[in-house]
Design a protein around this nucleic acid. Structure first.
Lengths: 224, 224, 224, 224
DNA sequence: AATGAATGAGTCTTCATTCAT
DNA sequence: GATGAATGAAGACTCATTCAT
């Protein structure tokens, strides 16, 4: 996969980084492999990116930006709940399929408590609370890093939450759970489905139809 | 968390390992830290556990064994689908709540593609297929390691699958999706719900009731 | 022995390695000491040499190459058996004198059975046979490593064997033993002589003359 | 190889040590393996032997004592040079064949310069001189250890030297080289011959006859 | 007496980051 | 600017030796 020499260095590095992070995960990825694939020097990476973490962040931030454009388009282009849901699910599943490991890495960075503390979105204050479990509370800088990553998810999930809220407001679906929570559940459910290999581009339409059907009508066989 | 001096070394080490793996994840955990917390020597760890991986495996294997006893009891003690589902969900959620990060680490190590290949359970041959994507296929030893971990999940999910299959056979719920897949989805959905902090022991009963209600009846408001 | 700063790092490392391997043997040599003497960082060693073994191999391979040039010149430049033998012996003794311990380490690595198996050159198949004595036979990789080292000796000894074979064919010396074996014996005899300090550059000419005289005429005093 | 329970512990340990040192060499041998084979505890080893080195020394000392009894018998029982030489060679080759690696280990420990200094027997003062090459001269204790090992060789070689001296005095063989040196050469020549697999118990008689023939009559084809 | 659990200094090896050219 | 040689802190793992039981 020879990368054209005319492509700017930073783009070449990001492409190589995507390839390697996706294959190896965050810790197992070495800059040596990235620069080898990007056909550049190690110093160059540090010219464009502060460090390994920022390289990773820039990469996923960019991926997220592209996804957000698509998700927002789904929301804007359709008005019915079913169309929005199907569109959202298809877009997301397709994205996960392409960026499976990258996003798994991302989850891992966010969900896990890596230094005795965790972030939790506070829907009222509209900021993140620090849930400290042991050890020292995080520095402002550490907190900022984690928020940076958490924001990526929140953006993606918020679109789904808005779809649900709209449907609730139109009395189309029950006001049963906190729509934020429901949106999170559906988001991660879709992600794990893809990760387990249960959904692929080939069977996606059928699988998404069943998924939506279950969501709307449930699994119970009505004894009427 | 002063550990009593009378507790056997291997137990002290496992406790310390749980603490650190849960805080740092697999790669970021160092034996130095485990040893420091267990208040023992490095050689002692290697006396009881072949290496870092086996220490981690022993830890999660033990947790899994305890969980399996509870899950099997739920299946055996109840006959109705609803009771079984509620029991399963409560047991699992309570377990996840206690072992949140450990299980996240486990997922990450298992489900994600970290070396160009992935395991997939083949329900017909009743073994695992290797899905190779790039690079060299894994050695038998590498495969064995991953299977060891994958088995943990499969055991837990199989109980849920059996609950679903029984319900299908009794014509209680629709035969809509592959029950293995459905069981996987529900399993990971419960897991991520807990990880996001949406469910805690305090609100668990209410949340599980809603969860089951959604599963059975769906979210649609019937326009009758 | 201050090493000039302008000498390339890999050369500095090889020099330091020679010093330490010669002093301590293979197992007892630590990279820490090599690095300290080479006045460089540990990573630098691993930049130039794959691992400790390859560092050692590179070192002896280089020594061997230099020696082979000299030995081949002796064979090419002289035609009489006596001149060839004297030239070979002097070259080899001079080399052993300079690289005494390094070559002792090498012998030890090759000749001794250190894992239940041993290599033996098969003159007919022109490859090495594995003589397995106990335990598992070596892996291909282990075998390759040992062959790598064994080749060094074989190259050096082969020159001597050719000298003997030529002399046999010219009916100058008796066809008494397998010339390969005889060559090996003489080679190791010269080596041990040097190692015991019996031959030094100062007494070399005299000693080699006696050595050759004994070889040709034997030690018996003729009672005629 | 179940070692009888009635055999004293120290004997069991020495037998196990022989097995393992012969298989692995000195550095690669672990006490764990020795005690496993000796079916005893690690503390017991330290009860009978000061440390790993003394265990090794006791082992080779004992082997040497047995060999010396045989070699001295050869010297005492025969009067002719040829009988003595054949007897010495056969005894030694048979011993080397049985204790190949053990003696290789020994040579390596003795002949090589392992800390910037070396021992050399001074035939006039009848003690060992320290040949210091670099670094600090050895402590008295270090010197004593090495002498301990060197003595083993010297005893064995001295028998051969006496055979040669007697033959010289009887005007049977030429007074050509220092008989000490010549004895050393023959000793090590026999050893390396065995180590290369050129001599085994099966072909020993034939090989020793050739060896002696070469020694006495040389290899030259007489053009008379 | 005999044991083996416990120890930790010591080893090889990796890799993010820097900086001289 | 761009490079990659150089670095050294850090990590997994080993093993001779000790000592409480």
């Amino acid at each position: 996969m020879a990368v054209g020499k005319l492509v700017p260095k930073d783009v070449r590095i990001l492409r190589a980084a995507e390839e390697v992070f996706s294959r190896k995960g965050y810790d197992q990825t070495t800059l040596d492999e990235i620069v080898r694939i990007a056909d550049t020097g190690k110093g160059t990476v540090y010219k464009y990116f502060k460090n390994k973490e920022m390289l990773f962040y820039t990469l996923v931030r960019q991926k997220n930006d592209e996804l957000m454009v698509e998700l927002n388009a789904v929301y804007a282009d359709h008005k019915s709940f079913q169309e929005r849901m199907l569109g959202y699910a298809r877009t997301l599943v397709s994205f996960f399929y392409r960026n499976q490991v990258l996003w798994a890495v991302l989850i891992f960075e966010i969900l896990t408590v890596s230094s005795g503390w965790q972030l939790r979105w506070n829907n009222e204050t509209r900021t993140y609370d620090v849930i400290s479990r042991w050890g020292k509370p995080p520095t402002e800088q550490e907190k900022a890093v984690k928020i940076k990553f958490a924001e990526l998810f929140r953006e993606e999930i918020t679109v789904l939450k808005n779809i649900l809220v709209d449907a609730e407001n139109e009395n189309y679906i029950k006001k049963q759970m906190d729509p934020s929570i429901m949106a999170q559940n559906m988001y991660f459910s879709l992600m794990t489905t893809v990760m387990q290999g249960a959904v692929t581009p080939k069977n996606m339409d059928e699988a998404m139809a069943k998924f939506l059907d279950s969501f709307l009508y449930g699994h119970l066989i009505r004894q009427s």
